[in-house]
Computed example of a mutant assay.
Amino acid sequence: MAKDVARRTEVETLRAADADRHQIAEQLKSALDEGRLSLAEYDERVRDAYAARTYADLLVLVADLPKPGLNAAEVNARRAAEVRRQARKLPMALMVLWTIWGSVAALNLAVWFVLLVTVEADIYPWPVWLLVPGAALAATTVGVQAIRGQQRR
């Protein structure tokens, strides 16, 4: 994280080229056309864009603007989708527990199946006992997700 911040501030201190200034001016023009900026704001920001020396000077001019072509409904929909995606994501501890349980269950089933095929006697189906911790883990997962859902409201 600190490395990303250091790299970002390092990039922001680099000098901007004319092409960079022109690109920001085009983005400001799109914002003006969409009605996000008044004519006075547009004039001021374009003047500042062409006077900018570093990337930091340029980025501050468009920091409060969405990407061209996006409207408020699309921005809100993307944010809501990201929140829903994060809500569905299991906590890391549960992911680890499900991985361990799945690995143990797969290994037990494989051993049981090999014994079933190779031994002529009846083999007790011990892997069925793995359903008990599996059910407990499933109940815990449902409970955790329900609690997380209540906390978001």
Rank of each mutant, 00 (worst) to 15 (best):
I24N: 00
A110C: 09
E82P: 02
I24T: 05
A17G: 14
R84W: 04
A72F: 08
A19Y: 12
A72W: 08
L28W: 06
R153M: 06
M92T: 11
W101I: 02
A121M: 11
A87N: 08
Q27N: 06
Q150H: 13
L58C: 02
A110V: 13
V46N: 00
A19W: 05
A77K: 08
V96P: 02
A6K: 12
P133C: 04
L97A: 15
W112Q: 03
E120P: 04
A2R: 05
A93S: 12
Y50N: 11
F113Y: 11
L39I: 14
G149Y: 04
E44M: 14
H22E: 14
A110N: 06
E41D: 15
V144Q: 01
P133Q: 00
L61H: 06
E12D: 09
A51I: 01
P127A: 04
M95A: 07
R152T: 01
L94C: 03
A16N: 03
K89P: 00
A81F: 08
V60Q: 12
D18G: 05
A146N: 01
T141G: 05
T118F: 08
R15D: 05
G69L: 02
A139T: 13
Q151K: 13
G102P: 00
D33N: 14
M92N: 09
R45L: 09
M92I: 09
V62K: 07
A87M: 10
A52V: 08
Q145I: 08
D64H: 13
Q86K: 14
H22Y: 10
A2T: 05
V96M: 10
D64W: 11
K89D: 07
R88I: 01
Y55T: 01
E120D: 14
A121P: 02
E120K: 11
D122V: 04
V96H: 09
R47Q: 15
R78C: 03
A81M: 10
T99Y: 02
A56S: 14
V104N: 00
